[in-house]
Every structure is written in C-alpha cells, then in structure tokens.
Amino acid sequence: MATRVSGRARWGWRQHALLWPVSLATFAIGIDTTVIGVALPSIQRDLPESAWGSSFVVVGYTLTFGALMLSAEHMADVYDRQRVFLCGAAGFALASLACGLAPTVPVLVCARLVQGCAAAMRNSAGLAILAQAFAGPRQRLIP
C-alpha cells in the first residue's frame, strides 16, 4: 500500500518486492529476443544446418512469444497469477538450459519454441501481478 509523504505517494516494500523480479524477468525476455542475433554466426559454425533451420532459431522464439501472449494472459486470469508466473520462469530457465546444451539445430529450435511459450506466460502473468499490486490512483506515482 502506498503512503503519502509530503503530498506524494510512496511505494511500500510489497510493491518493490514485486516490481524488481517482474522487471528483471521482462528485461531477460527482451535480451533473449535479441541475443540470438549476436550468437547466430557461432551457432551456424558449430551446428551446421540449412539456412531455414538457422532462421527458425531466431523466428521461433518471437513467433511463439507473440502468438501466445493473450492465451497466457487468460491462463493467468483463470489460474493463479503467481503460479503461472513461476511456471513460466521455471520453464524459461529449463528451456534456456536446453538451448545451451542443444546438440543439433532441430533441438535448439524446439527449445526456443518452449522458451517463447514460457516467456509469454512469464510476461503476461508478471504484468497482471503488477497491475493488481499498483491498482488505483494512490498507487501510481504521477507528478
């Protein structure tokens, strides 16, 4: 709950406890979207495959992430938001590990698809958690 100090609303420790993990999760989703472009030459060198496979490594994550955002939001509304966020975070971490250990491009593509699904869960549920925690005009710091 926000408190008023000298006419301005201040966030409590609960808002900060939610804001930082969700912000870091959102940052990781953005980094993971772009980092594959930097790593793609090494991937093509170490895991020789067709150009189609290499391009789907890049597109697969973004495609599943964007396509499943609304479905993940509905799942977060039906089930517990925190549970969906934590499942998305665990799935994202496991899929990231699978991406790092992938021996072939098809395995890497499958891991990236799972990573995109988990990122959609994590992002949708995280934003819903923040919207619930910072509800109302008192909670928003508007100058």
Rank of each mutant, 00 (worst) to 15 (best):
residue 2 A to W: 14
residue 2 A to P: 13
residue 5 V to L: 15
residue 11 W to I: 09
residue 17 A to L: 15
residue 17 A to D: 07
residue 22 V to I: 11
residue 24 L to D: 00
residue 25 A to I: 06
residue 29 I to K: 08
residue 30 G to F: 09
residue 33 T to V: 10
residue 33 T to G: 10
residue 35 V to T: 02
residue 36 I to V: 15
residue 36 I to S: 07
residue 38 V to I: 15
residue 38 V to H: 05
residue 40 L to P: 01
residue 41 P to W: 04
residue 42 S to I: 03
residue 49 E to A: 13
residue 50 S to I: 07
residue 51 A to H: 09
residue 51 A to K: 07
residue 53 G to P: 06
residue 55 S to M: 04
residue 56 F to P: 00
residue 57 V to S: 01
residue 59 V to Q: 06
residue 60 G to V: 08
residue 61 Y to R: 06
residue 61 Y to L: 11
residue 61 Y to D: 04
residue 62 T to L: 15
residue 64 T to L: 15
residue 66 G to R: 07
residue 69 M to W: 08
residue 73 E to I: 12
residue 73 E to L: 04
residue 73 E to Y: 04
residue 74 H to S: 09
residue 74 H to W: 08
residue 76 A to E: 00
residue 77 D to M: 10
residue 78 V to F: 05
residue 78 V to C: 03
residue 79 Y to E: 01
residue 79 Y to S: 01
residue 81 R to P: 15
residue 82 Q to Y: 13
residue 82 Q to P: 05
residue 82 Q to W: 14
residue 82 Q to C: 02
residue 85 F to N: 01
residue 86 L to G: 00
residue 95 A to N: 12
residue 99 C to D: 01
residue 101 L to A: 08
residue 102 A to I: 11
residue 103 P to Q: 05
residue 107 V to K: 02
residue 109 V to P: 02
residue 109 V to W: 04
residue 110 C to T: 12
residue 110 C to D: 04
residue 112 R to W: 15
residue 113 L to E: 09
residue 113 L to Q: 10
residue 114 V to Y: 09
residue 114 V to E: 12
residue 115 Q to W: 14
residue 117 C to V: 15
residue 118 A to T: 14
residue 119 A to Y: 10
residue 121 M to K: 08
residue 124 S to K: 01
residue 127 L to M: 13
residue 128 A to V: 07
residue 128 A to H: 03
residue 130 L to R: 00
residue 130 L to S: 02
residue 130 L to I: 10
residue 131 A to D: 00
residue 132 Q to S: 05
residue 133 A to P: 02
residue 134 F to N: 02
residue 134 F to M: 05
residue 135 A to K: 08
residue 135 A to V: 01
residue 135 A to M: 06
residue 138 R to E: 14
residue 138 R to K: 07
residue 142 I to F: 11
residue 143 P to Q: 07
